[in-house]
Design a binder for these strands. Structure first.
Lengths: 201, 201
DNA sequence: CCTACCGATCGGTAGG
DNA sequence: CCTACCGATCGGTAGG
């Protein structure tokens, strides 16, 4: 993203745009975008608030980058599943597993991406909503395909895709690494739920 | 809740605590708790910000009342379902229908209740989280009961109850009165999904 | 129910 | 990377 050598921090130190984003993400997740100050973010990195402006345009830009990265990752994983082929049920399973895995393994990203959409300025919000919509429609397309070949019996692909996506999104709110189920268990189980819901009659 | 005559507004006018809460709810839903000012709320009711303090203790108190009311309604409906009896599958269906119906018919309440939990001061937040937890555990209990009598085959009641609840919560984010499905359709369909997910094997 | 106002916070800039 | 600071916002109170 920058013209500096990959993986290097800026000369001798802790302060790189990537670290700033990480610190910001953690604070946004914990206390909300609006409640987080530039001084908070700087403080997490051992500098004062104004020092961040050498590497970051604005607080809003940090939020935009965090949420965009989240949606782009999700869409990239979905594209991989589509490219790999397989029956509708197979693709649904893989898609739900990737979706849930992401929401469990990147709780803060997912959480901020969902809660702070309205903290985005309207142009950016529109862009993000378009990406979300595309993500949902791709899932819906696979459901419709499965219906066409009688692999699924759901009557309303739109409601089914919302239900499947939303249950996965919820994982970001309750999942804990120290909890009774690990990421793989949850991902597998939710994929089963999705297929069950689609094949029931 | 107050000692004034039920249904009456305070002497000649638009300003009653209930109206203030309604206006606040709408604004909190639209732009977030922290981005909403007392002046905004007053403005929606035709008064200046400071005038609200005659009827309201603080902005925080408005949020507490809104979120508490939401959870209490949800819990009351759940208790009714439990009191009415029926097989686990019947109770699950009714519970999911009530849950979804509430989230579709009271989108703003549900939305604010979910997004602004971290805007509550810690004592209030704890109280609300306890209520949510109780709500979830009651659903889980019914799932476990259904497993005991072999009505359900799910292996993990905890994951199943999270999945069912979270898909219903999602309804508050995408449902529109002008959309292709009405509240009853969505409630019925989601109840089907829940049962499908619980009985699949 | 209003105006005036206090006290505090905050994003971002100036200018080293 | 820092201090000093501007300009603006906001919750809540005083005192009618």
């Amino acid at each position: 993203m920058t013209s500096e050598p990959a993986g290097a921090t800026t000369r001798g130190g802790a302060l790189a745009p990537e670290h700033i984003r990480d610190a910001a993400l953690h604070l946004f997740a914990g206390k909300g975008y609006r409640a987080t100050t530039m001084e908070d973010i700087g403080s997490a990195l051992g500098v004062r608030g104004p020092s961040l402006y050498r590497l970051v345009r604005s607080k809003q830009q940090l939020l935009v980058e965090i949420i965009s990265a989240t949606m782009n990752t999700l869409l990239a994983e979905q594209r991989q599943v589509m490219a790999a082929g397989g029956s509708p049920a197979t693709r649904i399973r893989r898609m739900v597993e990737a979706h849930v895995r992401f929401h469990a393994a990147n709780r803060e990203q997912a959480f901020v991406g969902n809660r702070e959409i309205d903290s985005l300025e309207s142009d950016d919000r529109r862009k993000i909503l378009r990406l979300r919509s595309r993500y949902e429609r791709t899932l819906r397309t696979v459901i419709e395909e499965g219906r066409t070949i009688d692999e699924f019996r759901v009557e309303n692909p739109r409601l089914a895709s919302f239900a499947i996506l939303d249950m996965g999104i919820g994982v970001a709110t309750w999942f804990r690494d120290a909890g009774p189920n690990d990421v793989s268990q949850v991902a597998y189980t939710y994929a089963e739920y999705a297929v069950a819901l689609l094949t029931a009659g």
